[in-house]
């Protein structure tokens, strides 16, 4: 009996090890877009770090705020200096899970709708979010995409009255990460 437990545990341990396939990227893309009648502001970040554990559904992001490129240098300076305070809070992170993991077959090509839930941390403030997106499995790669809205006010990012009309209350965030298998 004890032998059985031992071997079962051993098999369990190694099977998990084998199946714990992870996907990773260091150059995912995140853009945001603020639209008001006065001006549009957009920024692109092409150095997004992201990883997905296909076994557990854990999905994480780490975004260096200073890597957001703006159309105008002054916007970029204001973004880092005045709004997200990049010296104090260099990264934004997301630490969450694919809720409907069982509906994705990572060995079969296709586009799978997903619901993602977890903690989004921007400007040192953490909020629970629950958003929809897609996961496309193709050629052994996983392409995660999502579009959602973030309110600066939720993350203690204060916008002075003088520029309130220039910055949208809700900012559209677009995520596009192409994850590749992590080779151990």
């Amino acid at each position: 009996m004890k032998h059985l437990i031992f071997y079962a545990a051993l098999v369990l341990a190694f099977s998990y090890q084998a199946a714990a396939q992870k996907y990773i990227t260091k150059n995912g893309k995140i853009s945001f877009f603020s639209s008001t009648p006065i001006e549009n502001i957009e920024a692109h970040n092409k150095q997004v770090n992201s990883a997905l554990d296909a076994t557990t559904g854990e999905f994480v992001f780490k975004v260096l705020m200073k890597s957001f490129a703006f159309e105008k240098a002054l916007m970029q300076e204001h973004f880092n200096e005045n709004y997200v305070e990049s010296d104090k809070f260099p990264n934004a992170t997301f630490n969450g899970k694919i809720v409907n993991l069982s509906e994705i077959n990572f060995s079969k090509a296709g586009v799978y709708p997903v619901t993602i839930q977890g903690d989004l941390t921007i400007h040192g403030v953490t909020k629970k979010i629950n958003e929809k997106g897609t996961v496309e499995v193709k050629d052994g790669k996983v392409n995660g995409k999502a579009k959602f809205y973030v309110k600066p006010a939720d993350y203690n990012i204060s916008i002075p009255k003088t520029v309130m009309k220039n910055i949208a209350e809700s900012i559209e965030v677009t995520v596009d990460v192409m994850l590749e298998k992590l080779n151990k």
Partner: peptide, 9 residues
């Protein structure tokens, strides 16, 4: 868990 995954980054 997720912490390991974040460490990967």
């Amino acid at each position: 868990g997720a912490q390991d995954l974040l460490d990967l980054l």
